[in-house]
């Protein structure tokens, strides 16, 4: 029973790792690098700053 569980664990790990790699590849080829890395720190704060000036 425990040995079986051990094999199931390997299988789940492999499947999810494969899915993440696939999704990673898909996202990186679908979207531009600019879009993906467009997050900025303090975005909300930047809004208030703009309004003040």
């Amino acid at each position: 029973m425990w040995m079986g569980l051990s094999y199931v664990c390997w299988a789940i790990s492999a499947a999810l790792a494969a899915w993440m790699l696939y999704d990673w590849f898909k996202v990186d080829t679908t979207y531009s690098e600019e879009t993906l890395t467009s997050s900025r720190e303090g975005e909300l704060e930047a809004v208030s700053e703009k309004h003040r000036i």
Binding site: S6, Y7, C9, W10, I12, S13, L16, A17, M20
Partner: peptide, 11 residues
């Protein structure tokens, strides 16, 4: 196997 499953599933 349990270590691998923990880390991968949570990731």
């Amino acid at each position: 196997s349990f270590i691998a499953a923990t880390i991968v599933v949570l990731a």
